[in-house]
């Protein structure tokens, strides 16, 4: 049933420097989470992407990048689906 989604997640995780991946629906329900991405962060990730869409309504879709010294969290929304990728800084 969710094999296709699992395959996509595995593919993303196999990308170099990627340590975590999360997919959630528009209500903040976590559909898939792997690696360092925690299931509980799905709601926050969706909320951040919603706010970004409000700030930049002409940019479709806006990409949010949260940075720390070593890590990077990329958040983007596509339709009702929001994805987040956590990767080491290259």
């Amino acid at each position: 049933m969710e094999k296709e989604l699992d395959k996509v997640v595995e593919e993303i995780m196999s990308t170099p420097n990627v340590s975590g991946c999360l997919v959630a629906d528009h209500q903040g329900l976590c559909l898939a989470a792997k690696g360092t991405a925690h299931v509980d962060s799905a709601g926050i990730v969706v909320a951040i992407s919603e706010q970004a869409c409000k700030i930049q309504p002409n940019l479709k879709p806006p990409t949010v990048c949260l940075e720390t010294d070593k890590k990077q969290c990329l958040i983007q929304r596509h339709g009702t689906i929001t994805g987040a990728i956590i990767k080491q800084k290259s």
Partner: peptide, 10 residues
Amino acid sequence: LITNAVKKAA
């Protein structure tokens, strides 16, 4: 990376 990943996931 993020654009393709989200598109594939969607």
